[in-house]
C-alpha cells in the first residue's frame, strides 16, 4: 500500500526531527483526501481510551449550498474537516487557564494539560477557537489531544495518522511540512481560523 501513501516523503520528516533546536511537531491534513469516515476519531478513542463525549479529534461536516429543485443540476458541497488540537504557537487555552495547568513544551511545541493541576473550570474551552479542550465529566478535568505524546516518545506516529483510511493525515515538523507544501504544486495551503493563536496544524485543499 506504500504506493498509495501520496506525497509526503518520509525522509523529509526524519531529517527535520534530527535538526537541533526547538521544533513544532504537528499534523498535516489534506482536505481533498479526507473522506469523512471518522476512523481517526475512533483510532484516537481506542488509543487514548476517552469516554463518550470526550473526543480529542473530531471530524466536522460542513454543508455548503442548497439543493431544492430536482429538475436542476445540484450545486452543493460537503466538506470534512478533521479537528485535532492545533497545538498553537500562542495557545489561547494556556493564557486562559487560571491555575497554569496548560503548558507548551519547548522542545516539540506540544500543548499539554496537567490533569493534577486542572480544576475543571473549562475556561480553556471558552478560549479555544477550535473546540479542542474537552471536559471529562467523570474525572472533572479538562482533557485534549496530546498529539499522542506517549507514542511519539516511543518513536511512533499519532494514532489518528496511523488509522487514517484515506491516508490524508501526516505527522511531522511544522516548518518541514510548510516548506514541502510550498515547494510542490498539488496541494494548496489554507489557514484555519483567525483566532490569532498561531495554530500549528497545517491544512491544504
Amino acid at each position: 500500500m506504500s504506493e498509495l501513501n501520496p506525497i509526503l516523503p518520509q525522509e523529509i520528516i526524519d531529517e527535520s526531527f534530527k535538526k537541533p533546536g526547538p521544533k513544532q511537531y504537528t499534523l498535516w491534513v489534506d482536505l481533498e483526501y479526507c473522506i469523512g469516515c471518522h476512523a481517526c476519531s475512533m483510532g484516537c478513542k481506542a488509543e487514548n481510551n476517552t469516554p463518550v463525549g470526550v473526543d480529542f479529534n473530531r471530524v466536522i461536516e460542513i454543508e455548503e449550498g442548497e439543493f431544492k429543485d430536482p429538475k436542476k443540476t445540484p450545486d452543493i458541497g460537503v466538506y470534512f474537516i478533521p479537528m485535532p488540537c492545533m497545538h498553537c504557537g500562542e495557545p489561547a487555552c494556556m493564557a486562559a487557564c487560571p491555575v497554569g495547568a496548560i503548558t507548551k513544551r519547548k522542545d516539540d511545541g506540544i500543548v499539554l494539560i496537567n490533569k493534577d493541576k486542572c480544576i475543571g473550570c473549562r475556561y480553556c474551552a471558552w478560549a479555544c477557537p477550535y473546540g479542542a479542550p474537552q471536559f471529562n465529566a467523570e474525572a472533572k478535568v479538562m482533557e485534549k489531544c496530546t498529539l499522542c505524546v506517549h507514542r511519539i516518545e516511543k518513536g511512533l506516529i499519532p494514532a489518528c495518522v496511523e488509522t487514517c483510511v484515506a491516508k490524508t493525515r501526516f505527522f511531522g515538523e511544522m516548518n518541514a511540512i510548510t516548506d514541502f507544501v510550498a515547494r510542490q504544486k498539488v496541494a494548496k495551503k489554507v489557514s484555519v481560523g483567525a483566532g490569532g493563536t498561531k495554530p500549528s496544524v497545517i491544512y491544504t485543499k
Binding site: 498509495l4 501520496p6 469516515c37 476512523a39 483510511v165 484515506a166 491516508k167 498539488v186
Partner: peptide, 21 residues
C-alpha cells in the same frame, strides 16, 4: 467512503485514481 471493511480498500484506490497521485 464507508469506514468499515471492505470499503476502505476501495476508498484508497479511489483516492489514488481520483486525486493527486
Amino acid at each position: 467512503t464507508q469506514a468499515d471493511y471492505p470499503m476502505q480498500l476501495r476508498a484508497r484506490y479511489l483516492q489514488k485514481y481520483g486525486k493527486r497521485v
